[in-house]
Design a protein around this nucleic acid. Structure first.
Ligand SMILES: NC(=O)c1ccc[n+]([C@@H]2O[C@H](COP(=O)([O-])OP(=O)(O)OC[C@H]3O[C@@H](n4cnc5c(N)ncnc54)[C@H](O)[C@@H]3O)[C@@H](O)[C@H]2O)c1
Ligand SMILES: NC(=O)c1ccc[n+]([C@@H]2O[C@H](COP(=O)([O-])OP(=O)(O)OC[C@H]3O[C@@H](n4cnc5c(N)ncnc54)[C@H](O)[C@@H]3O)[C@@H](O)[C@H]2O)c1
Lengths: 215, 215
DNA sequence: TTCACGCTGTGACAAATTTCACAGCTAGAC
DNA sequence: GTCTAGCTGTGAAATTTGTCACAGCGTGAA
């Protein structure tokens, strides 16, 4: 079994490699990739073991080949098909970002209960009423659902999407969803992240003050 | 030293306890809180050790007292003062969400380089030009900076905020920032999270198919 | 051709994190 | 008062995650 952390780092390497390739880098050493990703060289080498790509002791990793191996490992060569539920302020921000495709993520359709929002397109993405979820999703082989509805609605929305056959979610609502073990949920709780940053900010800034006092 | 994971869970407990209290719950057992947070009861008890609050074997934890202890541990009784840099589509979504304060997070000011956006208020938050960053932040004792500028700009923005004395950041740009060890950065990379969810979605759905075949 | 340098791949080790399991306690029953 | 069921707090074990360190290899130099 392969850990979440490893997957996160591997997707990060993918992004960094794409950048490097566009800058004309043809080969890269583990310590260089490590610097970019802010991890140790040993970590990079260990992570790359799991995808089975081998580098060369003298020239390092071939950027193009490594990208190819990563692509194959993730099997996302044609982009990641997703749907978004909840076309509020956050939903619209995500649509405007991902519909002007700078990434390999494709938002194929959006859904909302509000009749004011349905029937038209936002940032080039069609917004459907929730009643049409099942039939629309069935046609699309969607890999991942983006949940941007209020917290109170999130559970029923995810239940409906699971019933339509989706196994992966990114949940922006500040609630822990209840899902079967065959479904993966990545929670992106902005509030929680700010609280975390604030906690460490305080503790780091206290540490800094102490050190200054001791000198 | 206390780990990031523990802090994340503790902030989550805080949110859940707030909800429980508003529902009239006066006491809660570790296994109940664990169910809500989707962790094990032992995990809850171990986490609560670090804040020094003790429960009662017969009645569990007193919701009000525990919240009080958490408040004191995090020292955020007056809310978390933040500033936001980059009033684009994502920045505006965050402003509209946090300025209609449902949480303890306060966005005290926003900044942008675009003269079209500066000088006015968005969702009740004043948007300043970047040139006024230093003086404005100096007046405010800000704990956390929210970075919602394009990836290419993120490093210079964070450098400027660090120079103004901010030690904590939530970074939405898809780049790894370079910061001194006295500064904490929480990266919220939406693209990366979707890729992660898509990877596990696929592997879970393959597993499901296999099991069905084996039967 | 031979050598030496500096990298990769990986077994072994170390650290961090989670879970186990149980002593000790406490409120209610009787 | 005494007993007991079922919780908490916490050492110790287990598991997960990251690092070390070095054998082995490929390349360019001589
Ligand atoms: N906006 C932010 O920056 C921000 C920040 C942190 C967290 N969040 C979270 O993200 C979620 C969305 O936030 P928002 O600010 O976009 O809210 P919003 O109120 O602007 O939008 C919510 C949208 O969901 C739709 N909706 C409601 N119930 C629905 C249902 N059952 N099915 C389908 N659609 C439904 C509404 O019609 C609306 O368009 C919330 O859970 C919020 O807590 C948002
Ligand atoms: N919008 C989304 O849903 C989304 C999703 C994933 C990631 N992101 C990331 O979040 C960031 C912002 O995204 P966005 O969609 O809001 O972009 P945007 O282009 O809509 O907004 C960026 C804002 O930053 C301002 N800006 C540019 N350079 C600046 C500087 N040096 N100092 C201060 N302000 C500056 C611009 O004027 C603009 O208002 C980007 O890094 C993007 O990759 C956004």
């Amino acid at each position: 079994m392969i850990s979440e952390k490893t997957i996160s780092r591997l997707t990060n390497y993918q992004t960094l490699l794409r950048q490097q390739q566009s800058m004309g880098t043809s080969h890269i050493f583990s310590h260089q990739l490590a610097d970019l990703a802010r991890v140790t060289p040993a970590q990079v080498r260990r992570d790359l073991m799991v995808i089975g790509y081998s580098g060369n002791p003298r020239t390092g990793y071939h950027v193009g080949d490594l990208q190819e191996s990563l692509m194959q490992f993730f099997a996302f060569s044609t982009g990641i098909p997703t749907v978004l539920v909840g076309v509020g302020s956050l939903g619209r921000a995500l649509l405007s970002y991902f519909m002007t495709g700078r990434s390999n993520i494709r938002i194929l359709a959006a859904f909302d209960t509000d009749p004011v929002k349905t029937g038209r397109s936002i940032s080039g993405c069609r917004v459907h009423p929730m009643t049409r979820l099942r039939e629309t999703v069935a046609d699309l082989t969607v890999t991942c659902g983006l949940i941007t509805v209020p917290g109170t609605e999130a559970q029923k929305v995810v239940d409906a999407l699971i019933a339509s056959g989706i196994h992966g979610f990114v949940n922006f609502a500040p609630v822990r969803l209840k899902v079967p073990p065959t479904v993966f949920v990545e929670n992106l709780d902005v509030t929680s992240s700010i609280e975390k940053a604030a906690f460490f900010a305080r503790s780091y800034s206290l540490k800094t003050q102490e050190e200054q006092t001791h000198e």
